[in-house]
Design a protein around this nucleic acid. Structure first.
Length: 450
RNA sequence: GGCGCUAUCGUCAAGUGGUUAAGACACCGCCCUUUCACGGCGGGUUCGUGGGUUCAAAUCCCGCUAGCGUCACCA
Protein backbone atom coordinates (compact mmCIF):
# COMPACT_ATOMS: atom_id res chain seq x y z
CA UNK A 1 0.00 0.00 0.00
CA UNK A 2 1.22 3.45 -0.87
CA UNK A 3 2.31 5.51 2.10
CA UNK A 4 0.26 8.64 2.58
CA UNK A 5 0.95 11.16 5.34
CA UNK A 6 -0.64 14.47 6.07
CA UNK A 7 0.03 17.77 7.76
CA UNK A 8 -3.19 19.17 9.20
CA UNK A 9 -2.70 22.62 10.68
CA UNK A 10 -5.43 24.96 11.76
CA UNK A 11 -5.23 28.28 9.95
CA UNK A 12 -3.80 30.50 12.66
CA UNK A 13 -1.46 32.58 10.53
CA UNK A 14 1.53 31.37 12.46
CA UNK A 15 3.91 28.47 11.76
CA UNK A 16 5.38 27.31 15.02
CA UNK A 17 8.72 25.50 14.77
CA UNK A 18 7.16 22.43 16.33
CA UNK A 19 4.48 22.35 13.66
CA UNK A 20 7.02 22.88 10.95
CA UNK A 21 8.98 19.93 12.25
CA UNK A 22 5.87 17.76 12.28
CA UNK A 23 5.20 18.72 8.67
CA UNK A 24 8.82 18.03 7.78
CA UNK A 25 8.85 14.56 9.28
CA UNK A 26 5.55 13.67 7.62
CA UNK A 27 6.94 14.92 4.33
CA UNK A 28 10.32 13.19 4.69
CA UNK A 29 8.72 9.91 5.61
CA UNK A 30 6.28 10.01 2.70
CA UNK A 31 8.96 10.96 0.22
CA UNK A 32 11.41 8.42 1.55
CA UNK A 33 8.78 5.74 1.04
CA UNK A 34 7.80 7.01 -2.36
CA UNK A 35 4.41 8.06 -1.04
CA UNK A 36 2.23 11.16 -0.92
CA UNK A 37 2.21 14.09 1.45
CA UNK A 38 -1.13 15.83 1.92
CA UNK A 39 -1.89 19.28 3.26
CA UNK A 40 -5.28 19.52 4.95
CA UNK A 41 -6.64 22.62 6.60
CA UNK A 42 -8.48 22.08 9.87
CA UNK A 43 -10.58 25.19 10.10
CA UNK A 44 -13.48 23.89 12.12
CA UNK A 45 -13.10 26.48 14.83
CA UNK A 46 -14.76 29.53 13.34
CA UNK A 47 -13.75 31.71 16.25
CA UNK A 48 -10.08 31.15 15.56
CA UNK A 49 -10.16 31.61 11.83
CA UNK A 50 -7.53 34.02 10.50
CA UNK A 51 -7.92 35.54 7.06
CA UNK A 52 -5.31 34.50 4.46
CA UNK A 53 -3.92 31.93 6.85
CA UNK A 54 -4.17 29.17 4.27
CA UNK A 55 -2.03 31.11 1.82
CA UNK A 56 0.37 31.85 4.65
CA UNK A 57 0.74 28.16 5.46
CA UNK A 58 1.25 27.29 1.82
CA UNK A 59 3.87 29.98 1.38
CA UNK A 60 5.72 28.89 4.48
CA UNK A 61 5.79 25.26 3.38
CA UNK A 62 6.99 26.35 -0.05
CA UNK A 63 9.79 28.40 1.51
CA UNK A 64 10.81 25.39 3.56
CA UNK A 65 10.69 23.25 0.40
CA UNK A 66 8.05 20.99 1.90
CA UNK A 67 5.88 20.40 -1.12
CA UNK A 68 2.44 18.80 -0.77
CA UNK A 69 1.27 16.36 -3.39
CA UNK A 70 -2.31 17.22 -2.52
CA UNK A 71 -3.87 20.20 -0.82
CA UNK A 72 -6.24 23.15 -1.21
CA UNK A 73 -4.18 24.51 -4.10
CA UNK A 74 -2.19 21.45 -5.03
CA UNK A 75 -4.91 19.31 -6.56
CA UNK A 76 -5.60 15.71 -5.60
CA UNK A 77 -8.50 13.28 -5.79
CA UNK A 78 -9.46 13.30 -2.13
CA UNK A 79 -10.67 16.88 -1.75
CA UNK A 80 -11.88 19.19 -0.66
CA UNK A 81 -8.83 19.62 1.56
CA UNK A 82 -10.41 22.28 3.74
CA UNK A 83 -12.60 20.89 6.47
CA UNK A 84 -15.16 23.68 6.45
CA UNK A 85 -15.99 22.55 2.91
CA UNK A 86 -16.69 18.98 4.04
CA UNK A 87 -19.49 19.60 6.52
CA UNK A 88 -22.01 17.37 4.76
CA UNK A 89 -19.56 14.48 4.94
CA UNK A 90 -19.14 14.74 8.70
CA UNK A 91 -22.87 15.12 9.19
CA UNK A 92 -23.52 11.92 7.29
CA UNK A 93 -21.07 9.90 9.35
CA UNK A 94 -22.21 11.44 12.62
CA UNK A 95 -25.76 10.46 11.89
CA UNK A 96 -24.66 7.00 10.95
CA UNK A 97 -23.10 6.67 14.39
CA UNK A 98 -26.33 7.81 16.01
CA UNK A 99 -28.20 5.13 14.11
CA UNK A 100 -25.68 2.52 15.17
CA UNK A 101 -26.12 3.60 18.77
CA UNK A 102 -22.57 4.85 19.20
CA UNK A 103 -23.56 8.49 19.41
CA UNK A 104 -26.52 10.54 20.53
CA UNK A 105 -28.04 13.94 20.02
CA UNK A 106 -27.91 16.57 22.69
CA UNK A 107 -30.15 19.61 22.80
CA UNK A 108 -28.54 22.81 23.96
CA UNK A 109 -29.57 26.44 23.92
CA UNK A 110 -27.51 26.95 20.77
CA UNK A 111 -28.87 24.00 18.86
CA UNK A 112 -28.26 20.29 18.54
CA UNK A 113 -24.89 18.66 19.05
CA UNK A 114 -23.93 15.03 18.57
CA UNK A 115 -21.84 13.24 21.15
CA UNK A 116 -19.87 10.04 20.92
CA UNK A 117 -20.99 7.39 23.40
CA UNK A 118 -17.96 5.94 25.16
CA UNK A 119 -17.84 2.46 26.68
CA UNK A 120 -18.02 2.66 30.47
CA UNK A 121 -15.78 -0.30 31.07
CA UNK A 122 -12.76 -1.97 29.55
CA UNK A 123 -9.75 -0.31 28.05
CA UNK A 124 -8.52 0.74 24.65
CA UNK A 125 -5.05 -0.07 23.40
CA UNK A 126 -3.33 1.24 20.31
CA UNK A 127 0.11 0.81 18.88
CA UNK A 128 2.43 3.75 18.42
CA UNK A 129 5.64 3.30 16.46
CA UNK A 130 7.66 5.31 18.96
CA UNK A 131 5.98 4.34 22.21
CA UNK A 132 4.75 0.84 21.58
CA UNK A 133 1.37 -0.16 22.96
CA UNK A 134 -0.45 2.50 24.91
CA UNK A 135 -3.46 1.54 26.97
CA UNK A 136 -6.02 3.85 28.47
CA UNK A 137 -9.06 2.85 30.50
CA UNK A 138 -12.31 3.66 28.74
CA UNK A 139 -13.60 5.14 31.97
CA UNK A 140 -11.15 7.98 31.41
CA UNK A 141 -12.92 8.89 28.19
CA UNK A 142 -15.70 11.47 28.19
CA UNK A 143 -18.61 11.41 25.79
CA UNK A 144 -17.03 13.89 23.47
CA UNK A 145 -18.77 16.16 21.03
CA UNK A 146 -18.52 14.98 17.44
CA UNK A 147 -20.62 17.60 15.76
CA UNK A 148 -20.92 21.01 17.37
CA UNK A 149 -24.19 22.86 17.54
CA UNK A 150 -23.02 25.10 14.69
CA UNK A 151 -22.79 22.04 12.46
CA UNK A 152 -19.00 21.97 12.44
CA UNK A 153 -17.22 18.80 13.48
CA UNK A 154 -14.67 18.79 16.29
CA UNK A 155 -11.06 17.92 15.63
CA UNK A 156 -11.48 14.55 17.28
CA UNK A 157 -14.16 13.59 14.80
CA UNK A 158 -13.09 15.31 11.59
CA UNK A 159 -9.53 14.04 11.67
CA UNK A 160 -10.73 10.43 11.87
CA UNK A 161 -13.20 10.80 9.03
CA UNK A 162 -10.71 12.64 6.84
CA UNK A 163 -7.74 10.43 7.56
CA UNK A 164 -9.82 7.44 6.58
CA UNK A 165 -11.38 8.99 3.51
CA UNK A 166 -8.06 10.42 2.37
CA UNK A 167 -6.45 7.04 2.88
CA UNK A 168 -3.81 8.29 5.27
CA UNK A 169 -1.58 5.38 6.27
CA UNK A 170 0.63 7.04 8.88
CA UNK A 171 -0.50 9.69 11.29
CA UNK A 172 2.48 11.76 12.36
CA UNK A 173 1.49 14.38 14.91
CA UNK A 174 2.42 15.87 18.27
CA UNK A 175 2.44 13.86 21.49
CA UNK A 176 -0.32 16.07 22.88
CA UNK A 177 -2.73 13.86 20.94
CA UNK A 178 -1.72 10.63 22.63
CA UNK A 179 -4.43 10.74 25.26
CA UNK A 180 -7.18 11.51 22.76
CA UNK A 181 -6.11 8.76 20.38
CA UNK A 182 -8.24 6.07 22.11
CA UNK A 183 -11.32 8.13 21.21
CA UNK A 184 -10.20 8.08 17.60
CA UNK A 185 -9.47 4.37 17.73
CA UNK A 186 -12.97 3.70 19.05
CA UNK A 187 -14.39 5.63 16.11
CA UNK A 188 -12.40 3.55 13.65
CA UNK A 189 -13.71 0.45 15.35
CA UNK A 190 -17.32 1.65 15.28
CA UNK A 191 -17.05 2.17 11.55
CA UNK A 192 -15.08 -1.01 10.99
CA UNK A 193 -12.24 0.91 9.38
CA UNK A 194 -8.64 -0.18 9.25
CA UNK A 195 -6.44 1.64 11.75
CA UNK A 196 -3.63 3.83 10.48
CA UNK A 197 -0.16 3.67 12.01
CA UNK A 198 0.37 6.22 14.76
CA UNK A 199 3.57 8.14 15.38
CA UNK A 200 3.36 10.67 18.19
CA UNK A 201 6.27 13.10 18.22
CA UNK A 202 7.85 14.53 21.35
CA UNK A 203 7.47 18.30 21.68
CA UNK A 204 10.07 20.95 20.90
CA UNK A 205 11.04 22.79 24.05
CA UNK A 206 12.65 26.12 24.76
CA UNK A 207 15.02 27.11 27.52
CA UNK A 208 14.29 30.29 29.44
CA UNK A 209 16.98 32.54 30.87
CA UNK A 210 16.46 31.11 34.34
CA UNK A 211 17.29 27.70 32.93
CA UNK A 212 13.80 26.28 33.06
CA UNK A 213 12.63 24.26 30.13
CA UNK A 214 9.12 24.36 28.72
CA UNK A 215 7.35 23.99 25.43
CA UNK A 216 8.91 26.44 22.97
CA UNK A 217 7.04 29.72 23.18
CA UNK A 218 7.40 33.45 22.71
CA UNK A 219 9.37 33.90 25.88
CA UNK A 220 12.19 31.92 24.32
CA UNK A 221 12.54 34.39 21.48
CA UNK A 222 11.58 33.61 17.93
CA UNK A 223 9.35 30.57 17.72
CA UNK A 224 8.06 30.56 14.19
CA UNK A 225 9.68 29.68 10.93
CA UNK A 226 8.97 33.16 9.67
CA UNK A 227 10.52 34.85 12.69
CA UNK A 228 13.70 32.93 12.06
CA UNK A 229 13.76 33.82 8.39
CA UNK A 230 13.41 37.46 9.32
CA UNK A 231 16.33 37.13 11.70
CA UNK A 232 18.40 36.10 8.74
CA UNK A 233 18.54 32.33 8.93
CA UNK A 234 18.23 30.64 5.57
CA UNK A 235 15.12 28.48 5.17
CA UNK A 236 17.27 25.46 4.35
CA UNK A 237 19.25 26.00 7.56
CA UNK A 238 16.07 26.06 9.59
CA UNK A 239 14.77 22.84 8.08
CA UNK A 240 18.17 21.20 8.41
CA UNK A 241 18.45 22.16 12.07
CA UNK A 242 14.87 21.32 12.91
CA UNK A 243 15.16 17.94 11.21
CA UNK A 244 17.89 17.03 13.69
CA UNK A 245 15.85 18.19 16.68
CA UNK A 246 14.27 14.89 17.53
CA UNK A 247 15.64 12.75 14.75
CA UNK A 248 19.09 11.46 14.11
CA UNK A 249 20.47 9.69 11.06
CA UNK A 250 22.68 7.30 13.08
CA UNK A 251 25.71 8.74 11.36
CA UNK A 252 27.71 11.82 12.24
CA UNK A 253 26.48 13.82 9.30
CA UNK A 254 24.84 17.08 10.32
CA UNK A 255 24.60 19.14 7.17
CA UNK A 256 21.81 17.81 4.99
CA UNK A 257 20.17 19.03 1.82
CA UNK A 258 16.45 18.27 1.54
CA UNK A 259 17.20 15.38 -0.79
CA UNK A 260 19.73 13.98 1.65
CA UNK A 261 17.17 14.24 4.44
CA UNK A 262 14.66 12.34 2.34
CA UNK A 263 17.20 9.65 1.56
CA UNK A 264 18.35 9.29 5.15
CA UNK A 265 15.05 9.61 6.97
CA UNK A 266 13.79 6.70 8.97
CA UNK A 267 11.23 6.43 11.76
CA UNK A 268 13.61 4.56 14.02
CA UNK A 269 15.83 7.63 14.25
CA UNK A 270 13.05 9.56 15.98
CA UNK A 271 13.45 10.38 19.69
CA UNK A 272 10.74 9.79 22.21
CA UNK A 273 11.93 12.51 24.53
CA UNK A 274 11.50 16.26 24.11
CA UNK A 275 14.30 18.27 22.48
CA UNK A 276 15.38 21.76 23.48
CA UNK A 277 15.76 24.28 20.69
CA UNK A 278 19.34 25.56 20.81
CA UNK A 279 20.20 28.84 19.14
CA UNK A 280 23.91 28.17 19.54
CA UNK A 281 23.73 25.16 17.34
CA UNK A 282 21.46 26.90 14.87
CA UNK A 283 24.00 29.72 14.63
CA UNK A 284 26.80 27.28 14.03
CA UNK A 285 24.88 25.50 11.31
CA UNK A 286 23.90 28.76 9.71
CA UNK A 287 27.56 29.80 9.59
CA UNK A 288 28.45 26.50 7.96
CA UNK A 289 25.96 27.16 5.18
CA UNK A 290 27.33 30.64 4.59
CA UNK A 291 30.90 29.42 4.46
CA UNK A 292 29.93 26.84 1.89
CA UNK A 293 28.44 29.47 -0.41
CA UNK A 294 30.26 31.28 -3.18
CA UNK A 295 30.76 35.01 -2.68
CA UNK A 296 28.10 35.68 -5.28
CA UNK A 297 25.56 33.42 -3.60
CA UNK A 298 26.20 35.00 -0.24
CA UNK A 299 25.96 38.49 -1.69
CA UNK A 300 22.57 37.58 -3.13
CA UNK A 301 21.04 36.35 0.12
CA UNK A 302 22.71 39.11 2.14
CA UNK A 303 21.73 41.88 -0.20
CA UNK A 304 18.70 43.19 1.61
CA UNK A 305 20.65 43.31 4.88
CA UNK A 306 23.31 45.56 3.34
CA UNK A 307 20.91 48.46 3.41
CA UNK A 308 21.75 51.62 1.48
CA UNK A 309 25.37 51.36 0.39
CA UNK A 310 27.24 54.31 -1.01
CA UNK A 311 28.46 54.20 -4.60
CA UNK A 312 31.92 53.00 -3.66
CA UNK A 313 30.71 50.08 -1.54
CA UNK A 314 27.93 49.19 -3.89
CA UNK A 315 30.47 48.23 -6.51
CA UNK A 316 32.43 46.18 -4.00
CA UNK A 317 29.47 44.09 -2.82
CA UNK A 318 30.96 40.79 -3.86
CA UNK A 319 34.21 41.58 -2.12
CA UNK A 320 32.35 42.65 0.99
CA UNK A 321 30.38 39.41 0.84
CA UNK A 322 33.62 37.42 0.71
CA UNK A 323 34.74 38.99 3.98
CA UNK A 324 31.39 38.70 5.68
CA UNK A 325 30.37 35.17 4.81
CA UNK A 326 32.78 33.46 7.18
CA UNK A 327 31.98 35.80 10.06
CA UNK A 328 28.20 35.92 9.99
CA UNK A 329 25.95 33.46 11.73
CA UNK A 330 22.71 35.16 10.80
CA UNK A 331 22.17 37.82 8.20
CA UNK A 332 20.66 40.30 10.63
CA UNK A 333 24.13 40.78 12.11
CA UNK A 334 25.30 42.43 8.92
CA UNK A 335 24.07 46.00 9.39
CA UNK A 336 25.98 46.41 12.65
CA UNK A 337 29.06 44.79 11.15
CA UNK A 338 29.31 47.10 8.17
CA UNK A 339 28.00 50.33 9.64
CA UNK A 340 31.50 51.70 10.21
CA UNK A 341 32.19 51.55 6.50
CA UNK A 342 29.51 54.10 5.82
CA UNK A 343 29.95 56.22 8.89
CA UNK A 344 32.99 56.61 11.15
CA UNK A 345 32.18 55.81 14.80
CA UNK A 346 32.95 58.57 17.34
CA UNK A 347 36.63 59.04 18.14
CA UNK A 348 37.80 57.11 21.17
CA UNK A 349 41.49 57.48 22.09
CA UNK A 350 41.28 54.54 24.49
CA UNK A 351 40.91 52.15 21.60
CA UNK A 352 44.41 52.96 20.35
CA UNK A 353 46.01 51.70 23.49
CA UNK A 354 46.85 48.01 23.19
CA UNK A 355 49.26 46.37 25.51
CA UNK A 356 49.77 43.14 23.64
CA UNK A 357 50.84 44.96 20.50
CA UNK A 358 52.72 47.63 22.45
CA UNK A 359 50.61 50.44 21.08
CA UNK A 360 50.06 53.77 22.87
CA UNK A 361 48.48 57.07 21.91
CA UNK A 362 51.94 58.53 21.38
CA UNK A 363 53.34 55.88 19.10
CA UNK A 364 50.06 55.64 17.23
CA UNK A 365 50.79 59.04 15.77
CA UNK A 366 54.26 57.92 14.77
CA UNK A 367 52.90 54.82 13.13
CA UNK A 368 49.97 56.34 11.27
CA UNK A 369 51.71 59.44 9.92
CA UNK A 370 54.25 57.65 7.70
CA UNK A 371 51.50 55.31 6.55
CA UNK A 372 49.54 58.27 5.25
CA UNK A 373 52.55 59.44 3.22
CA UNK A 374 53.02 56.00 1.75
CA UNK A 375 49.36 55.49 0.93
CA UNK A 376 49.12 58.90 -0.67
CA UNK A 377 51.57 57.56 -3.19
CA UNK A 378 49.27 54.73 -4.18
CA UNK A 379 47.30 55.77 -7.23
CA UNK A 380 46.00 52.40 -8.28
CA UNK A 381 44.04 51.52 -5.13
CA UNK A 382 43.93 47.75 -5.50
CA UNK A 383 44.13 45.18 -2.74
CA UNK A 384 47.42 43.86 -4.13
CA UNK A 385 49.06 47.27 -4.27
CA UNK A 386 47.90 48.17 -0.79
CA UNK A 387 49.04 44.87 0.62
CA UNK A 388 52.45 45.29 -0.93
CA UNK A 389 52.93 48.87 0.35
CA UNK A 390 51.82 48.03 3.87
CA UNK A 391 54.07 45.01 4.02
CA UNK A 392 57.01 47.04 2.84
CA UNK A 393 56.25 49.70 5.40
CA UNK A 394 56.13 47.14 8.22
CA UNK A 395 59.40 45.64 7.11
CA UNK A 396 61.22 48.96 6.88
CA UNK A 397 59.84 50.14 10.21
CA UNK A 398 61.39 47.24 12.08
CA UNK A 399 58.24 46.98 14.15
CA UNK A 400 55.98 43.97 14.53
CA UNK A 401 53.04 43.53 12.23
CA UNK A 402 50.57 43.83 15.03
CA UNK A 403 52.10 47.05 16.25
CA UNK A 404 51.56 48.71 12.91
CA UNK A 405 48.19 47.18 12.13
CA UNK A 406 46.52 47.92 15.42
CA UNK A 407 46.48 51.71 15.29
CA UNK A 408 45.75 51.68 11.58
CA UNK A 409 42.66 49.55 12.12
CA UNK A 410 41.43 51.78 14.91
CA UNK A 411 42.02 54.91 12.87
CA UNK A 412 40.24 53.46 9.87
CA UNK A 413 37.31 51.80 11.59
CA UNK A 414 37.00 53.19 15.10
CA UNK A 415 36.57 49.65 16.39
CA UNK A 416 38.69 46.77 17.58
CA UNK A 417 36.89 44.19 15.55
CA UNK A 418 36.36 44.45 11.84
CA UNK A 419 35.34 42.11 9.08
CA UNK A 420 38.74 41.63 7.47
CA UNK A 421 42.10 43.10 8.28
CA UNK A 422 43.60 46.54 7.72
CA UNK A 423 44.37 46.02 4.06
CA UNK A 424 40.86 44.77 3.40
CA UNK A 425 39.38 47.80 5.15
CA UNK A 426 41.70 50.15 3.30
CA UNK A 427 40.53 48.71 0.04
CA UNK A 428 36.84 48.73 0.99
CA UNK A 429 36.91 52.33 2.18
CA UNK A 430 38.52 53.58 -0.99
CA UNK A 431 41.41 55.98 -1.32
CA UNK A 432 39.68 59.18 -0.40
CA UNK A 433 37.81 57.99 2.66
CA UNK A 434 40.72 55.93 3.95
CA UNK A 435 43.20 58.81 3.77
CA UNK A 436 40.70 61.19 5.27
CA UNK A 437 40.07 58.91 8.25
CA UNK A 438 43.77 58.35 8.88
CA UNK A 439 44.51 62.07 8.71
CA UNK A 440 41.65 62.92 10.97
CA UNK A 441 42.78 60.32 13.51
CA UNK A 442 46.28 61.73 13.64
CA UNK A 443 44.82 65.20 14.20
CA UNK A 444 42.63 63.99 17.00
CA UNK A 445 45.48 62.14 18.65
CA UNK A 446 47.72 65.16 18.43
CA UNK A 447 45.13 67.41 20.02
CA UNK A 448 45.02 64.96 22.84
CA UNK A 449 48.74 64.91 23.53
CA UNK A 450 49.14 68.70 23.25
C1' G B 1 -5.71 15.60 41.41
C1' G B 2 -6.81 11.12 37.77
C1' C B 3 -4.70 9.19 33.46
C1' G B 4 -0.67 9.06 29.94
C1' C B 5 4.30 10.01 28.04
C1' U B 6 9.45 10.89 28.99
C1' A B 7 14.35 10.54 31.70
C1' U B 8 22.65 9.46 28.81
C1' C B 9 27.50 15.73 29.28
C1' G B 10 24.75 22.78 29.81
C1' U B 11 22.19 21.46 24.61
C1' C B 12 21.39 17.89 20.26
C1' A B 13 22.61 12.86 20.77
C1' A B 14 25.02 7.47 19.63
C1' G B 15 24.23 3.32 22.58
C1' U B 16 19.31 -2.32 22.46
C1' G B 17 23.49 -7.04 28.76
C1' G B 18 30.30 -7.05 28.58
C1' U B 19 32.47 0.02 25.08
C1' U B 20 38.28 3.73 27.70
C1' A B 21 29.89 5.65 27.34
C1' A B 22 30.83 7.94 20.17
C1' G B 23 30.18 12.54 17.61
C1' A B 24 28.36 17.73 17.23
C1' C B 25 27.15 22.67 19.46
C1' A B 26 28.42 25.62 23.55
C1' C B 27 32.09 26.46 27.32
C1' C B 28 37.33 26.60 29.28
C1' G B 29 42.71 26.38 28.27
C1' C B 30 46.79 26.39 24.86
C1' C B 31 48.85 27.03 19.82
C1' C B 32 48.64 29.69 15.19
C1' U B 33 47.59 34.65 13.86
C1' U B 34 47.05 41.28 11.22
C1' U B 35 41.89 42.20 15.71
C1' C B 36 37.59 39.07 14.96
C1' A B 37 36.94 34.86 12.29
C1' C B 38 39.21 30.45 10.34
C1' G B 39 42.33 26.40 11.66
C1' G B 40 44.99 22.99 15.15
C1' C B 41 45.53 20.65 20.01
C1' G B 42 43.70 19.63 24.78
C1' G B 43 39.98 19.73 28.89
C1' G B 44 35.03 18.34 31.85
C1' U B 45 32.93 12.92 37.99
C1' U B 46 27.40 12.78 31.82
C1' C B 47 23.78 7.41 32.30
C1' G B 48 17.79 11.29 37.95
C1' U B 49 17.10 7.98 42.47
C1' G B 50 16.25 3.38 45.34
C1' G B 51 15.55 -1.62 44.83
C1' G B 52 15.78 -6.04 42.10
C1' U B 53 17.15 -9.87 37.77
C1' U B 54 22.23 -11.35 36.06
C1' C B 55 28.86 -13.72 36.48
C1' A B 56 27.99 -8.77 34.24
C1' A B 57 23.01 -3.31 33.78
C1' A B 58 23.13 3.26 30.69
C1' U B 59 20.79 -1.04 28.46
C1' C B 60 15.74 -5.76 31.42
C1' C B 61 11.80 -5.37 35.73
C1' C B 62 9.47 -2.58 39.91
C1' G B 63 8.98 1.68 43.15
C1' C B 64 10.19 6.82 43.76
C1' U B 65 11.31 11.60 41.95
C1' A B 66 11.20 15.22 38.26
C1' G B 67 9.61 17.33 33.61
C1' C B 68 5.94 17.42 30.03
C1' G B 69 1.11 16.33 28.10
C1' U B 70 -4.14 15.51 28.69
C1' C B 71 -8.80 15.67 31.10
C1' A B 72 -13.20 21.78 25.79
C1' C B 73 -19.04 22.49 21.25
C1' C B 74 -9.46 24.36 20.54
C1' A B 75 -6.79 21.89 17.39
Amino acid sequence: MKVRTRFAPSPTGYMHIGNLRTALYAYLFAKHEGGDFILRIEDTDRARYVADAVEFIEKTLAAAKIIPDEGPHHGGNFGPYVQSERMDIYKKYAEQLVEMGHAYREETENGVAIRQKMPKTGETTFFDVLHGNITIANAELEDQVLLKSDGMPTYNFANVIDDHLMEITHIIRGAEFITSTPKHVLLYEFFGWELPTFIHLAPVMGKAEDGTVSKLSKRHGATSFNDLVEMGYLPEVITNYVALLGWNPKTNQEIFSMQELIDAFSLDGLSKSPAVFDYNKLDWMSGEYFKAMTDEEFAAVADKFFGELNANLAQKKIYLASLLKSRVTKLSEIPAMIKFLMEMPPFDAELFVNKRNKVTVANSIEIISPAIKILEGVDDWTFENLSEKISAYIESSGMKTGTIMWPLRIALSGQKITPGGVVEILYLLGRETALERLTRAVGALQNLSD
